[in-house]
Design a protein around this nucleic acid. Structure first.
Length: 883
RNA sequence: GCCGAAGUGGCGGAAUGGCAGACGCGGUGGUCUCAAAAACCAUUAGGGGCAACCCUGUGUGGGUUCGACUCCCACCUUCGGCACCA
């Protein structure tokens, strides 16, 4: 036969377009709120749709979850896999300002583009549930939740110094300040006193810690949350101030060292500073306060910084021994933690030790390491060693038990109180920006703060021409009289609306619930829908939200639980973080003193940047030999974005999917390479050719003749075993997010199938061979379905089947077929491999041991030496210990 | 500084107490072709040997074990997080 038929070309563009259209027409991914099947809710962190669209980097979290969801659907689950837009917030507003555009229109356009791209990649979203946090029918409920928190005493307005970003011109939550800088723009953050809205997240601190034990999240993320909440146990103690009514309250984790307190330190901003400072010291104290105020957070937080401080002239009384100790102010004490004041125990706290040495303040040992220990010889504080020598507890060890004993004693004597303190601060929710959900509060001159009645929600964000931040600390909304002026719901008199909007994290703290019931106009979600779908079974997104979004969403969920709205306390059962995608990017080296935007870091130990991306226009003119290539995160600002559009056009969406899954473990940071995507494409092509060549031998009724292949031998038996092993492996690997080895397993199967095809050549297959081919082709098609869904559905159709692989049951493996018949037993001598034995699976250990000892290699090693021990591990190896 | 994760061929990675390097990239040789590409086949950790084989090898140094990439201790490096938290 010379009709060596040319295999049909793999026309992925046509195939992918065709199936995407058919899926949409069939409403294939539409999830019903009721089903006899068990539910599965898979969720991606909902994105802010930026103008750059999605890059192949985004596909690294959307595709794996899509694979998991598609597999769940085939396994018989009723799957909810939704997508929506985190459209409110500063990123969108900043971009709109930059482009001189209306944020509303702009966001619609960008979201539409995202949607188009996600469809292009073949993600199985139920688009009928698409939501947009900037739509009134969504933010109505964000406002409703604000009022829920308000009514439960969890939203309050207070005027304390806030983190202010001078570039974004708005307040920032503590979580949004990274190393003293704004997390969005990197501008050093300032402190400003201003009346602001807060959510009382600190009231939930303990539950936010304990809840972590009930969920399957990466340990690193849990740890970061625990640290952020920063629980510490200790005591509060009041120190009377000599000659004043006031007392200074301190929090300490080490009340057992009270007897060694030789001075006190107040934060420069502490309200009592002005009260206690003496006339002689006032000038010096004022100067220090001013200096501390001028310093940015960055400067104040810099490590290895020498301690500085000023004496106030005042003294406090140590309540445990009546001694008078000086009161200082110093910037190493922070107003934002504890009470803003500390008792200083230089002997047992390193910071206090340094301070005492510098200002010649006495040091008193509470715990002594040895009888001849002298203060003069000390070079550092000894926080965790020694035996107590002062106090009624002399003789106690320096440990937790002693601390607890002292706390009880303090409570009995009414000197102090046991107390738990948290690093977590309340969540600053006010933003002096336009593009957010207005805070639904009315300020009435008569009735004060009045919540907007629920039937008046939403408080609609007005359409305006000018929405730029004012920079005065007032929201742009304050300049719109039609918005501001309203009527007090209580007295009917004239009143003013709150003009701050909510930060974007409010919108994202409940969106996962809205997906359960996205079109509900009566409530945020129906209890029934929430009970059915929630909690989210699998949540996938980047680790950059480890504290912010994930902490806030957990907080709101607990509030809703307490309000009886839902039956669960943790919103996300299982969480996975995908790794970053890096692109090889040309840049140039930058001298450390060049291009440093805020040229005042004279002694900063960290260079801001010693390398800069070349701008596109620079790339053409820059001397090639001076270009320094680096792997950096793919982002529009770096000019190194690869879009799914171009990859889908050149290689196809299925190839892109395979690439991202295969290139590295899901959590790992990976480097985008052209050879990588080409390899994936080559594999998909290879499957296409192999499958297409074998397709003519397919028998639709192969299941009826399974008996014909129950006793295959040789290569055919091996291929069938491989097939069933692959079913097992692919199933397990998708379940556990090990997509790279999952693809590898499919490649191995393909390789075996290829060898089989080569063996077969142009010969017509025998009856059993045809059945085997049929089983392999059909099963391979279904195994590929979650990974390369377009290709799989095309194959499915070409097998003469109806419908979609998405609706087919996931293949089951036959353990007997998958079982190995003969296994290789490794024979070791003293732990070194000397021989290998191929034995039947069911050979008894004693037999294997005997064979091993008879092995020529082993006998050669023996050479007169004694066999001391023989270790046999069933199915694995025999180790002969000689000596 | 503290906390966490990681370190394996030329490269991405596999193996989580039992055959180190699956799978893929890249390389080399071959088949096909007028030629090339594609595809297919073979080979590919390093060193030694004509060979069958032998030795070395998972960041470094110790330890536990019959046996360690895997567990324990110390150190080095890289990445991520936190950073005067009283």
């Amino acid at each position: 036969m010379t009709e060596e038929k040319q295999t049909e070309r793999y026309d992925f563009r046509a195939i992918e377009k065709k199936w995407q259209r058919r899926w949409e027409e069939a409403g294939l991914f539409h999830a019903e709120n009721k089903s006899d099947r068990p539910k599965f809710y898979g969720l991606d962190f909902f994105p802010y749709p930026s103008g750059a669209g999605i890059s192949v980097g985004h596909c690294r979290n959307y595709v794996p979850l899509d694979v998991a969801c598609r597999q769940k659907a085939m396994q018989g689950f009723n799957v909810l896999h939704p997508m929506g837009w985190d459209a409110f917030g500063q990123p969108a507003e900043n971009e709109a300002i930059k482009r001189g555009r209306n944020p509303k229109e702009m966001v619609e356009e960008y979201a539409a583009n995202y949607k188009r791209q996600l469809k292009l990649v073949g993600i199985s979203y139920d688009w009928s549930r698409e939501i947009n946090s900037s739509h009134p029918d969504y933010y109505k409920w964000t406002q409703w939740f604000f009022l829920l928190l308000y009514k439960r005493g969890l939203a309050y307005r207070a005027s304390t110094p806030i983190n202010w970003c001078p570039s974004c011109k708005t307040g920032l939550a503590n979580e949004e300040v990274v190393a003293g800088r704004c997390w969005r723009c990197g501008t050093p953050v300032e402190k400003r006193p201003m009346p602001q809205w807060y959510f009382k997240i600190t009231a939930y601190a303990d539950r936010l810690i304990s809840g972590l034990d009930t969920i399957q999240w990466p340990e690193g993320i849990k740890l970061m949350q625990r640290e952020w909440i920063g629980r510490s146990e200790g005591a509060e103690v009041d120190f009377p101030v000599v000659g004043h009514e006031e007392t200074i309250r301190v929090f300490t984790t080490r009340p057992d060292t009270l007897w060694g307190a030789t001075f006190m330190v107040l934060a420069p901003e502490h309200p009592l500073v002005d009260v206690v400072t003496t006339a002689e010291q006032r000038a010096e104290v004022e100067a220090y306060k001013l200096k501390a105020q001028r310093e940015t957070e960055i400067e104040r937080q810099s490590t290895e910084r020498a301690k500085t401080g000023v004496f106030t002239g005042a003294y406090a009384v140590n309540p445990v021994n009546g001694e008078q100790i000086p009161i200082w102010i110093a910037d190493y004490v922070l107003m934002g933690y504890g009470t803003g004041a500390i008792m200083a125990v230089p002997a047992h706290d390193q910071r206090d030790f340094e301070f005492a040495r510098k200002y010649n303040i006495p040091i008193v040992l509470v715990y002594q390491i040895s009888v001849d220990q002298t203060i003069e010889a000390m070079t550092e504080a000894t926080p965790h060693t020694g035996t107590m020598v002062l106090s009624p507890f002399a003789g106690s060890p320096n440990d937790k038990t002693t601390v607890n004993k002292v706390i009880r004693w303090l409570e009995e004597k009414s000197i102090g109180q046991g107390r738990v303190n948290y690093r977590l601060r309340d969540w600053l929710i006010s933003r002096q920006r336009y593009w957010g959900a207005p805070i639904p509060i009315i300020h009435c001159p008569k009735d004060g703060e009045v919540p907007v009645p629920e039937d008046q929600l939403p408080v609609v964000l007005p359409d305006v021409e000018k929405y730029q931040p004012t920079g005065t600390g007032e929201s742009p909304l304050a300049g719109i009289p039609e918005f501001v002026n309203t009527i007090c719901p209580v007295c009917g008199g004239p009143a003013r609306r709150e003009t701050d909007t909510m930060g974007g994290f409010a919108c994202s703290s409940w969106y996962f619930l809205r997906f359960a019931d996205p079109h509900n106009n009566e409530e945020a979600f129906s209890r029934e829908a929430a009970d059915y779908w929630l909690p989210v079974d699998l949540y996938v997104g980047g680790a950059e939200h480890a504290v912010m979004h994930l902490l806030y969403a957990r907080f709101w969920t607990k509030v809703m639980y307490d309000a009886g709205l839902i039956a669960f306390e943790e919103p996300f059962q299982r969480l996975r973080n995908q790794g970053m995608l890096l692109a090889h990017t040309p840049g140039r080296e930058v001298r450390k003193d060049e291009d440093v935007s805020d040229g005042e870091d004279t002694d900063s130990d960290e260079p801001i940047e010693d390398w800069k991306v070349l701008r596109p226009e620079e790339r053409k003119t820059f001397p090639p030999d001076q270009i320094v290539w680096r792997w950096v995160k793919m982002s529009k600002s770096k000019g190194n974005v690869v879009t799914p559009d171009e990859i889908a056009e050149k290689y196809g969406a299925d190839s892109l999917r395979v690439y991202g899954l295969f290139v590295a473990p899901f959590e790992d940071t990976v480097q985008w390479t052209d050879t990588g995507i080409e390899a994936a494409h080559r594999y998909v092509n290879r499957v296409w050719r192999l499958w297409t060549e074998l397709r003519p031998h397919y028998r639709p009724d192969w299941r009826a003749d399974l008996g014909a292949i129950s006793s295959l031998e040789g290569q055919e038996r091996n291929l069938r075993r491989k097939l069933h092993q692959t079913i097992r492996k692919v199933g397990e690997d998708i379940e556990s997010f090990r997509f790279n080895t999952c693809i590898a397993a499919l490649m191995e199967l393909t390789n075996d199938l290829s060898a089989f095809r080569n063996e077969l050549g142009n010969k017509a297959p025998t009856e059993p061979q045809a059945i085997l081919i049929s089983e392999v082709l059909e099963t391979l098609t279904l195994l590929l379905s979650p990974i390369a869904p377009h290709l799989a559905d095309e194959f499915w159709e070409r097998l003469g089947q109806e419908g979609f692989t998405f609706r087919q049951p996931w293949p089951q493996f036959d353990p007997e077929v998958a079982a190995e018949e003969a296994i290789t037993i490794v024979v070791q001598v003293n732990g070194k491999v000397r021989d290998r034995l191929l034995v039947p699976v069911d050979m008894p250990d004693s037999e294997i041991e005997k064979l091993a000892l008879e092995s020529e290699k082993v006998r050669a090693e023996l050479d007169g030496k004694q066999v001391r021990k023989v270790i046999a591990v069933p199915g694995k190896l025999v180790n002969v210990v000689i000596g």
